[in-house]
């Protein structure tokens, strides 16, 4: 049996016929072709599939697709606006926070969800926000630096 899903993904109104057993991450990757959202475990243990739903960072692999009904979703593809990278993306690049890049979209979404709500996070708040995003390459140091630096820039530009 299928259901009709209506939601907004990256500012675009979506209406789709879905199998409710499908996970949201599969809908995003395979139906919307937004492959920037990654699958690292499909059990909510790594954060590679993190998206922002109604302002909160969530694991899209753990959500039934219909949980998206009526929500506003942002994936990594929706972060760059009008050909301009978001400050967080720029700082990830500038500060060496990216290596293999597989965790990066999830890291950026978690960081963005944090900074959208809390423009002046403490180091501990950054660590909490990123605690569910595993990175095996960087050791996290440069990722934290990137988030702190992006926060500072965002405050200055505001």
């Amino acid at each position: 049996m299928s259901e009709i899903l209506k939601c907004i993904i990256n500012d675009e109104e979506i209406e789709a016929c879905v199998d409710p057993e499908m996970r949201l991450v599969d809908f995003i990757r395979e139906r919307m072709h937004l492959t920037g959202t990654k699958i690292g475990c499909k059990k909510g243990e790594c954060g590679a599939c993190t998206i922002i739903m109604d302002g909160n960072a969530v694991n899209s692999c753990l959500l039934p697709v219909m949980r998206a009904e009526g929500t506003v979703i942002q994936t990594i593809e929706g972060v760059e606006k009008d050909g301009r990278l978001h400050v967080i993306q720029e700082e990830f690049i500038n500060k060496g926070a990216i290596q293999c890049g597989f965790c990066t979209p999830g890291m950026i979404m978690s960081s963005k969800a944090l900074l959208d709500k809390n423009p002046s996070p403490t180091t501990d708040e950054v660590k909490e926000a990123l605690g569910g995003n595993i990175c095996r390459c960087t050791g996290y140091k440069k990722i934290e630096e990137a988030v702190m630096s992006a926060a500072k820039r965002l405050r200055e530009e505001a």
């Binding site: 920037g36 593809e77 972060v79 993306q89 690049i93 990066t104």
Partner: peptide
Amino acid sequence: RNDGYDKATG
């Protein structure tokens, strides 16, 4: 890094 754009945007 020159692959920064690709990786930061997905």
